[in-house]
């Protein structure tokens, strides 16, 4: 697996709606720009070989870094695969929709739920939003959130951006009633 670049993004929100957010809300993203394992091979029916080559390794690279970048307990998390223009969206899905990838993050974050995800194809510099949900109970409404990401020069047509996102808490100024109140 060839990694061209690793990008780290940390957003701290100090005020929202004109009021302080205490403690400051933190969301971290770490993204790896990798070569599409199926680049130049035409339509590959069985994606197993590429998954075996790259999925676990990229999960292993990203998971500890995003936990460290957040600098605290991970309360919500999500993932992304952004495929360059020459690839199939299925290539991105192949790398992130496998336990071989996600378990690295689940273990590092003491998480149990499925990771919400975005899969998309686009040019270098495309923006994408990573959805995040609570790490142990995906129905906890306060933690439904997303973060917008853009890498200036990725993905190239033959690349895939794989990213993990972690949040230290729920949305800034979250104040919606729990799901149970509507059931």
């Amino acid at each position: 697996m060839n990694v061209r670049k690793i990008v780290t993004l940390v957003e701290e929100t100090l005020t929202e709606g004109g009021r302080p957010v205490e403690p400051n809300a933190r969301v971290a993203v770490v993204a790896a720009v990798i070569e599409n394992p199926w680049r130049g091979q035409g339509f590959v029916e069985d994606l197993t070989a590429g998954i075996d080559e790259a999925a676990s390794r990229v999960g292993e690279v990203l998971a500890p870094r995003v936990v460290k970048a957040l600098g605290g307990t991970v309360e919500a998390y999500g993932k992304a695969a952004i495929v360059g223009l020459d690839g199939e969206i299925e290539h991105g899905s192949a790398l992130i929709h496998t336990l071989k990838f996600g378990d690295h993050f689940r273990n590092a974050a003491n998480a149990t739920t499925l990771l919400p995800a975005v899969e998309k194809r686009g040019p270098a510099g495309v923006t994408f939003d990573i959805p995040l949900k609570h790490v142990t109970d995906a129905t906890i409404r306060s933690h439904h959130q997303s973060i917008e990401v853009r890498l200036a020069d990725a993905p190239h047509p033959g690349e895939i951006v794989i990213a993990l996102a972690a949040a230290s808490q729920g949305r800034p100024q979250q104040r919606l009633a729990p799901l149970s109140t509507e059931q």
């Binding site: 670049k5 690793i6 990008v7 993004l9 940390v10 957003e11």
Partner: peptide, 12 residues
């Protein structure tokens, strides 16, 4: 309102 840190590490 917000502080954003962005870092790039070029491996290749």
């Amino acid at each position: 309102r917000k502080i954003v840190y962005y870092q790039e590490e070029i491996l290749l």
